[in-house]
Amino acid sequence: MLMTVIPIAYTLVSLAFLLSFWRLIKGPDAPDRILALDTLYINTLALLILLGIHLGSAIYFEAALLIAMMGFVGTVALCKYLLRGDIIE
């Protein structure tokens, strides 16, 4: 049963990727694009966790943790740039 569910989950997460990517390209404003990038990070997280379950390997967890952290720092830095016009004050 698990092996029939996982391909469906892959499909849904990939569709989520496409939708976020569409928003990244379309915009229209800078915050929209940052939000799309943030969502793409979280989608990547979902995909990596699925991959970990599918292949039965715990190694993907470390990558997921790193991506979560980098994604958050990236979003905060970009927002800070929009708010202040500068990142490091």
Partner: peptide
């Protein structure tokens, strides 16, 4: 759990688009 997770991830991005 996997199916719920994937559906919610999809809906989140659907909302974004």
């Amino acid at each position: 759990l996997i199916l719920t997770g994937a559906i919610f991830t999809f809906i989140g991005s659907l909302g974004l688009a």
